[in-house]
Structures are given as C-alpha cells and as structure tokens.
Amino acid sequence: MLGSGLLQGLAVTAKNLVGSFHDPARYTTVEYPEVKEQLPESFRNFPFLVTDNATDPMGALRCVACQICEKECPPQCIYIEKSKDKKPDATGKPQLYPAVFAIDTSVCMSCQICVEVCPFDAIKMDQEFEIATTDRFSALLLNREQLAKPNTYFHQIRPTEAAEVDGRLTAERKAAEEKAKAAAAAKAAAAAAPKPAASAVPTATPAATAPTAPKPAAAATPAVPTPEKPAP
C-alpha cells in the first residue's frame, strides 16, 4: 500500500532516536575536548626526531644528517644542513649530525615515508595533533629543537614499535661492541700495541653547533659504548 515504505522509514528513524539514548552502537559520538579517544598505536601525524637523552636533546639525536629523508620526502618539506664536525652516535661511531633540521608542517602530508626510509630510526611519527596556531608561518616551521623528543616519549606513544627499535639498536650496539672488542683483542694479540690515546670522544666536541643547542656531552648517551678504537 502507498505509504508503507514511508512508515517503515519513520519506524527506523524512531528506533534510532530512541537508540541514540541508550545504545552505544548507535550513539558513537565522543565529545572531543572533554573526552579524548585513545589513539591507536600506529596513529601518525607529523614527524619528530628521536633523541636518546631527555636532558640533552641536541647532543643525543639519532639523526646523522644523511639526508635520505630529505630526498625521499614526497612534498619536500624537510630541510637539513649537515654539521661540520662529527660526534659519536649510539654505537659510538663518529657521525655527522644535523646542524639544521627543519620540517615545514604546513607542507608535510604525514605520509611516514621519512620514517620508513630512515636507516637510523632517528625520525618517527608523532601523535600530537592539537597543533593549531595563530601564526601560519614560523609557528608551523619546526626546527630541530622543537622536533627533538626523547626516546621515553616514543616509548610512551608507541610501546611496541619503540621496544622493537630499541631491541634492534641494542643488538647493533652489542654487535659493534663485540666487533670492537674482537678488533681490539686481535690487535692486542697481533702486537702489543700502544694504548689507544685518542678516543672518538674529543672529536665530537662541537665547534659549530647551532647556537641555541646545548653543548653535547660525549658521555650523555645512556648506553655509551666503549669508545671505538681509532683505525690503525
């Protein structure tokens, strides 16, 4: 009969009207600023730089300024300037570090490709999404001081991935240590060589870091490996 379909539709809407008061499957609204949903672990927003030391973020950046992310970034929103000097990385190898590392978040499209291509697990995706500002130029252009966040924060937002990354890094470190030990032992065995006078530490004393950055202390990295012996 004409109208039965309309009545059916009215019944559906009436059911939803009532259901929205008691049925959480129907009423799915979360009233945002008061209630915040738990973000899924893989949620990604903008990149941040992982630093291994919260008290001295600039000294313990994992980034070695290899510029792979800069090249691979689809919208070209990363800008990196290499440092002139070197300092030891997590495995103790003397590495370059970024003197300037800037991400223009107004250009960034949160694609995570920088994270995927980074061989050093130095750049990761953040979950901070309340980043509205009233200044669309400088406030959205993040420099390395703003980008650097400690590894503990990474653990906090993505426990699984961070644990995996840490495991991998420790393994690498261990491997490097053993290699160094083996090399040292070999060297010692080969010829009672003179004590290594120069470690990598002094070379890392920065001469030309960014002025705002605190001076990186060589022993700041939590798991400081034995300084690598200089190559004979």
Binding site: R26, S42, F43, C111, Q112
Partner: peptide, 29 residues
C-alpha cells in the same frame, strides 16, 4: 542528513580499522 549520518557512522568504524592499521583514517599510504 539522516541516511548520510548512518552511512558515516558505519564508515567511521571502517576508518577506525584503517587508522589502527595504517596510522591514518583516509590517507592510509
């Protein structure tokens, strides 16, 4: 807006799945 809202309610459930898998609701990559 009623059918649209019902549709979006269901779509949101799928998008939640996408988000928890890929990290983004719509721009999954």
């Amino acid at each position: 807006g009623t059918p649209l809202m019902y549709a979006f309610r269901e779509r949101e459930k799928i998008l939640d799945l996408f988000e928890s898998l890929s990290g983004s609701r719509m721009m999954c990559n």
